[in-house]
Amino acid sequence: METISAASQLFQFIVTGLTVGAIYAMVAIGFNIIYNVTEIINLAQGEFVMLGGLIMVFMHVTVGLPMILAFVTAVLLVTLTGMLLDRLAIKPIRQPSVMTLIIATIAASIVIKGTAMLIWGKSPYDLPAFSGRTPIELGGVIIQPQYLWVIGFLVVVTIGLTLFFNRTILGKAMAACADNPDAARLVGINVQYMVLLSFALSAAIGAIAGMTLTPIALMDYDRGAMLAIKGFGAAILGGLGSFSGAVLGGLLIGLIESLGAGFLLSGYKDAYALIVLLLVLFLRPSGIMGNFEVTKFKRF
């Protein structure tokens, strides 16, 4: 085995960091979609990722559906879970204070996680990589094909959402709810429907993150909380509500973790990302791309 040069080592850290960061970014985007319409931070977002992975494994490996079909059914089922979450746990709350809503999403995440444990047990599950496991070598840097799928899906999701919010009537209506729910109601937008839609959309994106992650890291029922915290961190770092901020925040956290593990003490790698996050917040209290004036108008 030839030794690896310092430059390829650096690139290897960057490639890995970007891949893991892309997962965080997708979770952060999910946070933002719901936040923009409802001002809720949905701490059950990580459970969508876990469910996406496990349902895909079930559909593809256990039931034996072809990859694409399994992918579609898993997205649909998780989307349905997201809609149920809104209808059963969020909408019935009569006096929705911010703290109550946070607790409600935590409660929902506990129920989802517990149900997943009852269905799948505690052991991890594997999913075949989407296009094989033969690594690609580029100048000493090793890239797993699945890395490309993860980053590719992040690009597709970002472009898709940008088009949706800017070009379609439905997307524009959702954006209007985000800006001013009362005004949106006045012009005849069904705000409750938009809230439901936001849960559906962010559940679907969470599911995609989970399905692309599983071939790399396996999946078990207990993975959601960690992903939710990382994704929440990414959303805050980038600035709540900003999609480009979410992508930037996610990739940054992934990169800092990977470079921190590579060059500094790996035991502290999670701390490095969080220290950077705190420093950014102390300098820019609304994150990198967030607008402080806008946050002032938010109830929370």
């Binding site: 931070i41 915290i229 961190g233 996050l277 705190l278 994150g287 002032k296 929370f300």
Partner: peptide, 12 residues
């Protein structure tokens, strides 16, 4: 910091 930003900062 305000609201969710404070939540994340204390979490971190």
């Amino acid at each position: 910091l305000r609201g969710h930003y404070l939540a994340m900062a204390t979490l971190a």
